[in-house]
């Protein structure tokens, strides 16, 4: 943009020298900008590179000095030794709890968000503010009473207790995200449907929600990722090892038995990160196609 500004400026430029100096200084700025970005990228990605690198080393090379960034004797040994029944069980638990929470929080959130977006409810803003504020509520404070409730309801040591916990800590975000999306959908579509005699439920489930697929997807992913990360409920509401989700399971068993086998711990870390990484990579495409498809149809 600066080039244009200078060229169209009213003052005639002393052309030869200053143009060269200008170009050089621009080049220097551009170079230092690129260098800065590459440097910060290197620092930010170093932990991830180091994790992946360590996971492919035999244990003997893990402690080599100076450290090897590219494994000299690459091996997948650290991965294959991890395939125990217990880790598989943790993965399964996390997937089940994550999926159920995603469905429940997104479903309940979408219905409430639609109502908040479309109907002139008294105290609508207060409700939204409450949802936003509830994000900051101390989770351990909630857990104390939830624990007492779950003891009485017999929900300790079950998926249901975990799903409820993960649902309520994500529901506020789902409502906000989906309400913003519904606010942008033209209300005329629904009005036309009502004129044609469609019921409110039919309009919501067959017309509005299908249009909201990308937002529903984003909401579900958010819940799943939060659930995948969550440690406290998994530690507290579950007492048997086989019911624990990944974070709680790992911190209760793998880390307590851990004896400096860093390649194995890094292989475990890579495996725990991978589903989320894939989810985001795949999701970006679905999300974009969903948005554009909706725009074309609308």
């Amino acid at each position: 943009m600066n080039t244009e500004v200078l060229r169209t400026g009213s003052k005639p430029l002393p052309r030869q020298r200053s143009a060269v100096v200008y170009k050089l200084s621009r080049l220097a700025t551009s170079f230092s900008m690129h260098a800065l970005v590459v440097a910060s990228l290197a620092i930010l990605l170093l932990p991830i590179v180091w994790m992946v690198s360590t996971s492919f080393k035999p244990l003997a090379d893990v402690f080599s000095y100076p450290p090897q960034f590219i494994p000299r004797n690459p091996t997948v040994e650290a991965y294959t030794t991890q395939f125990t029944g217990l880790l598989g069980r943790y993965f399964l638990n996390s997937v089940i709890v994550g999926l159920l929470s995603a469905v429940l929080a997104t479903g309940a959130g979408a219905l409430a968000a639609y109502g908040l977006s479309r109907y002139r409810l008294p105290g609508r803003n207060a409700i939204l503010m409450f949802f936003m504020a509830s994000l900051a509520f101390p989770i351990p404070l909630l857990m104390i009473s939830m624990y007492l409730m779950f003891v009485q309801l017999g929900l300790l040591n079950s998926y249901i207790g975990l799903v409820i916990g993960h649902t309520v800590i994500t529901l506020p975000v789902c409502v906000w995200l989906l309400k913003n999306f519904f606010d942008q959908l033209p209300v005329e579509v629904e009005e036309a449907a009502f004129v044609d005699g469609a019921s409110r439920a039919y309009t919501l489930f067959r017309i509005v929600l299908p249009m909201a697929r990308p937002a529903l997807g984003a909401s579900a992913i958010f819940v799943f990722v939060t659930s995948w990360n969550e440690l406290l409920f998994g530690l507290t509401f579950v007492s048997s090892t086989s019911m624990r989700p990944l974070p709680a399971g790992i911190s209760m068993s793998f880390l307590t038995e851990f004896e400096g086998a860093w390649s194995e711990m890094m292989a475990l870390s890579v495996m725990v990160s991978l589903p989320i990484f894939l989810l985001f990579t795949v999701f970006q495409r679905t999300f974009m196609s969903g948005v554009t498809a909706g725009a074309v149809k609308g």
Binding site: I48, M51, F63, P67, N229, L231, L255, W262, M266, I276
Partner: peptide, 24 residues
């Protein structure tokens, strides 16, 4: 850079234990 945001907390915990390990 966005990949960093995807790393689960439990993984950061383990990874930081390794990165900040005293001897190696």
């Amino acid at each position: 850079i966005f990949q960093v945001w995807v790393v689960p907390w439990i993984v950061i915990a383990i990874l930081w234990g390794w990165l900040f390990s005293q001897d190696y």
